[in-house]
Structure formats: structure tokens, C-alpha cells
Nucleic acid binder design. Structure first.
Lengths: 163, 163
DNA sequence: TTGGATTGCGCAATGA
DNA sequence: ATCATTGCGCAATCCA
């Protein structure tokens, strides 16, 4: 039940609201210079009624008041977070690139392996053929009983050598 | 380069400024209800002097007024963009996952190929050995001139083969 | 000029 | 409490 977020009806939950930062130094170009006399909302320090009563600091839930946007601490936290976010995102992106890189490497490796396989296969087939040939020769020479005294048992010189 | 981002001085370039949306329906909790009478920047409709002259549609700069945050059209554009953004991000994520997936597949493939290579290599080596053995046998049987007329080509097993 | 697609950025909720 | 992740909206660009 998270966020149904129906594409219709601008349903901005929490966000969509922000206040003027504070400074504006050299603005970019066409900033509506109208807004210029507002800021510095009264400190707004809550009296903290809950814990204010007695002293019982029992296992309460401490719901952390939304932190006044002005609070020094707030800005600090925000800034920290922003930093963390940036970092995280950079990592993420880096990781993505690395993964892509990995893919390329693996692809190359694959090609190499396949080439090797092809070569080995060929070599194998050649050797096998040689074998068969030999077998036939032997058969031809031996089968016909002791008639042929072939002194040179097929000196074939099929230099099979690759790599 | 880029952003030294000194942890001090909230240096938000363009961003950091936003006004209350417009509608507020069921707000969250503690919205600074203070700001509530500002907006409606003068329409600021440029007379468009550049193109106003003749018909020359030269490389003018037409800086599109910041679009009033209230404008119906504004919200519309925003919504469209938000949609596009969401879409784009989804795609991006999907792509990342696919890439990761691809890596896994390639890894597997690689293993398979390597296994195959190993097998082929072994087969090859065996065949080669057989060949050598044979050659030796032949040599042994032939070299000693025609001394042995045995029909059986001496199945001797003096094979000092290591591997 | 128009309009979707990308991208950097900040905010807030949530996970660890 | 702190940092890391993640979804989201805004605005500037990019691009077709």
C-alpha cells in the first residue's frame, strides 16, 4: 500500500513545498525579483508540552518534530544528506558503468574461448582422420595374410601442427 | 572543478526556491502556514520586440518567461515532465538490471566454453599420445631390420609414457 | 517553436 | 543518532 500515485490528480504528498532559501547572491538571469522581503520566520521554538510536564522519560516514541526548517541543525542534516545522496548516486553510476565494462570483457573472453574451441576441434578432427587412415593402412597390409612384407609402413608425413 | 561544495553557504544554484503549490487539501502536519499571501507575479507578458519587426526568424533568444507557477499550463507541463522522468528512470533501472543479467549469462557461457575446451584438450592429448606410441612401436618393429617375421607385430608395452 | 527524454539536484521516508 | 538508499518533484538541457 505504498503510493498508488494515480497519474491523475496532482497528489503531491509531502513534497511540493519549499521556502525561499535565504541568500540569493548573483542570481542567474531572470529571477522574479519580486519576492525579496520575506524570510527569517520567528524561531518558533516549541514548548515541548509532552516531556515538559514531569520527568518521566519512559520508552516513549519520540516522534521527532518535523524539525523547524530554520533550525541550524536541520540545515546541517539536510546538507549531510545531500552529500550522502550525491555520493550514493555516484557510486551507483560507477557501478553501472563497471557492469557494462564487465559485459564487454566477458564478451571478448567469450570470443577468444570460442576461437580456441574451434581450433582444438579442427586439430582433433585432423588427428582422428589420420588415425583412421592408419587403421586402414594397417588393415590393408595385415589382412591379406602374410603376402606383403611391406618394409615401409606408410611413412606419411602429415605434419599436423597448429597453435 | 565541478562543485567544491563547501559544506557552508547553502549555494543552491537555480533550485532551492519554490512556492506553495496551490492546492493544499489534506496537508501533512505542520506546514508553515505563514507564507500565504505571496505569488501571482505580474503576468510579465513580453511584447516580443525581436520577432515583432518583420518576419526574420533569426536566432533570437526568446527566453520563455519562468511560467507562473499557478498557470494551468505550467502544472500541465510539470505533470507531463514528471511522467517522462518516471518513465525514463524506470527504463534506466531496467536497463541496468538487464546488463547485470547479461553479465551472469555471459559468465555461465564462459564456464561452459572453458569446460568444453578442457575436454577437447584432454581428448587431443590422448590422441597425440596414442600417435606417439604407435610411432614408437613402428619404429621399434621396423628399425631392427627384418628379423622378426612374426605375424603379430609384437604388442610390446615398453611404453615409457608419462602423460 | 514544440515536446518528450535525460540529467543534476534537493527533500523526505526508510533501511541498516 | 548517522549514513545509505530510494522515490519523487523541479528545472535545465538535450534532442528530434
Amino acid at each position: 500500500m505504498s503510493r498508488p500515485s494515480q497519474p491523475k490528480l496532482t497528489a503531491t504528498d509531502h513534497n511540493g513545498v519549499s521556502v525561499i532559501q535565504s541568500q540569493a547572491h548573483a542570481a542567474s538571469s531572470s529571477l522574479p525579483a519580486a519576492v525579496a522581503g520575506l524570510q527569517q520566520v520567528p524561531q518558533l521554538v516549541p514548548a515541548n508540552p509532552s516531556t515538559g510536564g514531569g520527568k518521566a522519560l519512559a520508552p516513549s516514541k519520540m516522534k521527532k518534530p518535523p524539525a523547524d526548517k530554520d533550525s541550524e541543525e536541520y540545515r546541517q542534516r539536510r546538507e549531510r544528506n545531500n552529500l550522502a545522496v550525491k555520493k550514493s548516486r555516484m557510486r551507483s553510476k560507477q557501478k553501472a558503468m563497471d557492469t557494462q565494462q564487465r559485459v564487454n570483457e566477458l564478451k571478448e573472453e567469450n570470443e577468444r574461448l570460442e576461437a580456441k574451441i574451434k581450433l582444438l576441434s579442427k586439430e582433433l578432427s585432423v588427428l582422428k582422420d589420420l588415425f583412421l587412415e592408419h587403421a586402414h593402412n594397417l588393415a590393408d597390409n595385415v589382412q591379406p595374410s602374410a603376402g606383403a612384407e611391406g618394409s615401409s609402413p606408410a611413412p606419411n608425413s602429415t605434419s599436423t601442427n597448429g597453435q
